[in-house]
Nucleic acid binder design. Structure first.
Lengths: 148, 148
DNA sequence: TGTCTTTAATTGTATATACAATATTTATAT
DNA sequence: ATATAAATATTGTATATACAATTAAAGACA
């Protein structure tokens, strides 16, 4: 391949690649939420897990991972930190392999305290991305869940 | 706030949060590209930088960061690894602070070799996310660039 | 010219992420 | 009942990411 052909290919990838742009938007939006939650000592990654667990009540790692499409090893480390901060607690289970956990009262309190920051970040993200994006993301996740 | 009110709040955040869904899609799509590039020993994060630099020709870290909305410290470590792999090389500059770099011939070759994998991952992502998403992402990045 | 400020990048530290390997427990098959 | 397989989670390792602090160089200015 000639140098000019490689240039063409490079420009095509740079300008059309879905992953490049998705990752840019992800970084920018994650930063909006991280900035909003910083005074509370929490990050969007942790709030994601917190509300997923809150919704489930009693959550097994594998179930949380299925919902959030996280690797189990990733969740394991995140939960470790969140237990250390007192937001999650492991509860016993008949199955000796399982390590189900749930929100502590501190975890619930954190969600409550974080609500204004979340609303602010959510509004800011909607304004940045436009109204259509929310539905698109819903559809995308729905499709992802169907195919998994 | 009562327990039931916290439950409502939790469910609202879990089901409406833009960041949760954006981050899910980001993980799933990044994995599609990472899987495609794995035989080449590269990751989507690195290919992003590679094509951005390729498009620029001679790239200063701060410029790459502006395009990709990456923190300079993040880029610094990534470039370090990519130099070690022989894909990027630093070139001298009059300004002693600057550390501009460019693709090596091995870097160009990698782009060339990665093209089929990229096309496959790109197609798979388009099918997964639907045709509308690409335009949405374009718009979003455009908006982000305008406001920065 | 010498100090002060600004700019550019790296380094220290912490979290996030995933793959591979491992440990432990439960389920299955013979 | 025992050996094997499957399921569940953790641990080892590497990369990605960002904030804070630092280093180094250039620019501004008195």
């Amino acid at each position: 391949m000639t140098n000019s052909q490689i240039d063409d290919l490079t420009n095509t990838i740079a300008s059309e690649c879905i992953a490049v742009r998705l990752r840019i938007v992800n970084r920018v939006v994650s930063k909006i939420y991280d900035d909003a939650f910083r005074p509370l000592g929490a990050k969007i990654s942790q709030m994601n897990i917190l509300v997923a667990v809150g919704k489930m009540g009693i959550a097994r790692p594998a179930d949380v991972c299925q919902v959030l499409h996280l690797d189990v090893s990733t969740l394991s480390r995140n939960v470790e930190r969140m237990k250390a901060r007192g937001w999650l607690e492991v509860i016993p289970d008949e199955d000796g392999r399982a390590q189900p956990f749930r929100l502590t009262s501190a975890g619930k309190k954190l969600i409550e305290q974080a609500a204004p920051a979340w609303k602010k970040a959510q509004k800011q993200s909607q304004e940045l991305l436009g109204v259509a994006i929310s539905g698109q993301l819903n559809q995308a996740v729905k499709r992802i869940d169907e195919l998994t």
